[in-house]
């Protein structure tokens, strides 16, 4: 066992990267749930984003176009969910599960000819001299643009929900859709927009895995990250900054346990492998003990009667 082989600076830098797919997907789902919709199809939208991003990046040889296509793909798939739940008033849980299964199958079909190909790499942002600062440089200034976009989106979502009129209306719709309707707000339209935003971010998260984290295409490569993102939203009490904290905690422990495995620590691999899930859940449960802040209309079907 050799713990000195673990470099704390590289570990922190790697955890930010490991956390980004979860962070993107969870931030999107947070907005969806604050609008009162429970979309369990995150995993399906992520994998669709992963293959759309991968395929377009390979075809155009541009990771930027890849990410754009991933967002579009995720949003398009989420539109199917929006149609089912908002227009035909189907059950949200069943529709979300169906979306995940559909996304997994469709991505496998789309991805058949892309197995074993290397995608074009997205370069890190060049911060010039900032990157040379000891410790801080490698941790904060050595990443790709999408990672920074993820953090910026958390801040943006937080600010919009808290300070803007559109955020207030979105929260109102999620809190009590009947009252919002009575006041004249377009519940279905607002929810559809939120669902598409959530789909786009899930797609970005998926593409981050296939274009940056791994980077290659294999079937089912999101491997449950979408479900972790869903759980994270609940345990984070629907608060953006707690989602960030939870995602980094999860990413951090994932990296740490991989490093520990590499260093040959005398803990069975199974325990190490489960530790990110267990610790993330424990910490967020403790955090969420203050007050359950679930949006009042979460998961309920809205029908404008009269």
């Amino acid at each position: 066992m050799d713990l000195s082989a673990i470099n704390p600076i590289l570990l922190v830098a790697a955890l930010m990267s490991a956390a980004t797919p979860i962070l993107l997907a969870a931030t999107g789902e947070l907005v969806v749930e604050r609008a009162g919709v429970l979309n369990l199809g995150v995993e399906g939208m992520m994998i669709i984003g992963a293959i759309c991003g991968f395929a377009i990046a390979v075809e155009t040889n541009s990771p930027v176009f890849g990410f754009l296509a991933a967002a579009a793909g995720g949003a398009l798939l989420s539109l199917l969910f929006a149609f089912l739940t908002q227009i035909t008033l189907a059950n949200q849980v069943a529709s979300g599960l169906a979306l995940t299964l559909f996304g997994l199958g469709l991505s496998a079909l789309l991805g058949q000819s892309y197995v074993g190909i290397k995608p074009p790499r997205m370069g890190d942002i060049n911060f010039g001299p900032l990157a040379d600062i000891p410790v801080v440089g490698p941790i904060l200034f050595s990443h790709d643009p999408v990672l920074y976009l993820g953090i910026a989106l958390v801040a943006l979502v937080w600010g919009i929900l808290k300070f803007s009129r559109i955020g207030l209306v979105l929260r109102a719709v999620g809190e009590n859709h009947d009252a919002a309707h009575a006041l004249g707000y377009k519940v279905v339209r607002i929810r559809t927009m939120a669902i598409m935003f959530g789909g786009a971010l899930a797609g970005l998260g998926g593409a981050y895995i296939s274009l940056i984290r791994v980077p290659q295409w294999t079937e089912g490569m999101t491997a449950g990250v979408g479900w972790i993102a869903l759980a994270l939203v609940v345990f984070a009490s629907w608060k953006p900054w707690r989602v960030l904290l939870g995602a980094y905690l999860f990413g951090g422990i994932t990296q740490l346990q991989l490093n520990l495995q590499g260093a040959g620590v005398a803990i069975p691999v199974e325990y190490l492998a489960m530790s990110p899930y267990v610790i993330t859940i424990i910490v967020l449960v403790i955090l969420s003990a203050d007050k359950s802040a679930a949006p009042g209309s979460l998961g309920r079907t809205f029908h404008a009667s009269h």
Binding site: L168, R171, N176
Partner: peptide
């Protein structure tokens, strides 16, 4: 009442 429990008084009024 057509009010939103999780929002503040001012936010509720702004929505109307």
């Amino acid at each position: 009442f057509s009010l939103f429990d999780a929002l503040t008084v001012a936010e509720n009024i702004a929505l109307g």
